[in-house]
Write a protein that binds this DNA or RNA. Structure first.
Length: 360
DNA sequence: AAGACGGGGTC
DNA sequence: GACCCAGTCTT
């Protein structure tokens, strides 16, 4: 338990005063009170920095101005999410929209428990929404707040060991009134002053009592998880074009990497063999394109794009109808001139862009 | 408790 | 190339 509560008013006041002068302003969602738009913003901001989110958020809200529009088509949601990463967020956003419409008449629930029961909303996002959308005491604990609190209090230990204690600090410091302003102030402090590297301790409002500042340990906290080996995987991405020049894309399963996104057929085995044995056609031409590398959090992918031509139009239909691992619903012929509005990963987007450029 | 899950920026 | 980031869900 936390016993030393004497300095709480000062902590909070100092952070808020600092934020009035140095905090961010002008973010698209900052003055907004609309729960729907704030919800979208909070989901986008998970594991993603503000500067990356802003253009995506603007396009997304223009495409889906309300929750009923959002609930219409998952593929279109993933299209506007393409490039942001962590696509399960988009799928869960879409699923939550259905639930909110069915169970809550299209209004986001104001109850913390009901909020957290929605897919994609955990403890911190629920807290952020409670504060920003509903004016309640909502507590957040994201990377920024964790860094500020763990440095200020000198919280040592592996990240998942510290979480419980950090939540206790966060609960203690968060005011019951104007929690949203305090939350924003803490995130700004973490993002602009108490940065992961080279924190600007000279201008920090907490410099007088900060444990790490006093002991010169700013770089040590928060403690990092031990690095892990990054396995390397290899994949051929098959660029299969029909006689119209359209490109075969298949929908990935809803789980796993790039879940529910549209992709080139992918294999580890010899591409020509894969075409014959699994897709039941023999390409009339085959060309290996330069490799690309793609890094994930947990592994690294070496991609070899392979360019394959289909001999006649009848084979195009055959692929759609007969390839046993794909159903017609999971296949599209993608036209570079009239692109489908579906979700695609960064590598697929990059490859398609290059193909499009080469043709002009 | 640990692993899965993207992508881009920084140094 | 290694490290980092406005977390949540699954197992």
């Amino acid at each position: 338990m936390i016993t030393n509560v004497d300095f709480i008013p000062q902590f909070r006041r100092r952070v808020l005063r600092w934020a009035r002068k140095h905090g961010r302003c002008g973010l698209p969602w900052q003055e907004d009170r609309d729960p729907y738009r704030l919800w979208v913003a909070e989901i986008m901001l998970q594991q993603t920095q503000v500067q990356k989110v802003i253009p995506y958020y603007t396009r997304f809200i223009a495409a889906f101005p309300d929750i009923y529009r959002l609930a219409q088509c998952e593929d279109e949601v993933l299209y506007y999410w393409s490039g942001l990463g962590y696509y399960s967020r988009a799928r869960m956003l879409y699923r939550s929209a259905q639930i909110i419409i069915q169970q809550y008449g299209g209004q986001l629930p104001q109850c913390p428990k009901k909020l957290q029961d929605l897919p994609g909303i955990g403890r911190s996002t629920a807290g952020a929404l409670l504060a920003s959308a509903f004016g309640k005491k909502g507590v957040i604990l994201d990377g920024n707040v964790k860094r500020v609190l763990s440095r200020y209090h000198g919280v040592f230990g592996a990240p998942n060991q510290c979480v419980s204690l950090l939540w206790q600090y966060a609960e203690h410091y968060t005011p019951s009134r104007r929690a949203a302003r305090y939350n924003q102030a803490m995130m700004d402090l973490g993002a602009l002053c108490c940065t992961p590297r080279d924190p600007d301790c000279g201008h920090c409002p907490l410099r007088r009592d900060c444990f790490c500042r006093q002991n010169g340990l700013q770089q040590q906290l928060p403690e990092k998880a031990p690095p892990k080996k990054m396995p390397v995987r290899k994949a051929y991405m098959l660029i299969i074009r029909n006689t119209y020049g359209e490109i075969l894309l298949i929908k990935r399963p809803p789980r796993g990497v790039w879940g529910s996104l549209w992709h080139f057929p992918e294999t580890n085995e010899n591409p020509e063999q894969y075409c014959r044995r699994t897709l039941h056609f023999t390409p009339s031409a085959i060309e290996f394109l330069p490799q690309l590398h793609h890094s994930f959090t947990h592994f690294r992918l070496e991609i070899t794009p392979v360019y394959l031509s289909l001999p006649t139009q009848s084979f195009c239909r055959k692929i759609m109808e007969c390839a046993p691992i794909y159903t017609a619903q999971d296949c599209i012929w993608y036209n570079l001139q009239r692109p489908h509005k579906v979700g695609m990963s960064a590598p697929v987007t990059a490859i398609l862009k290059k193909l499009s450029q080469d043709e002009t």
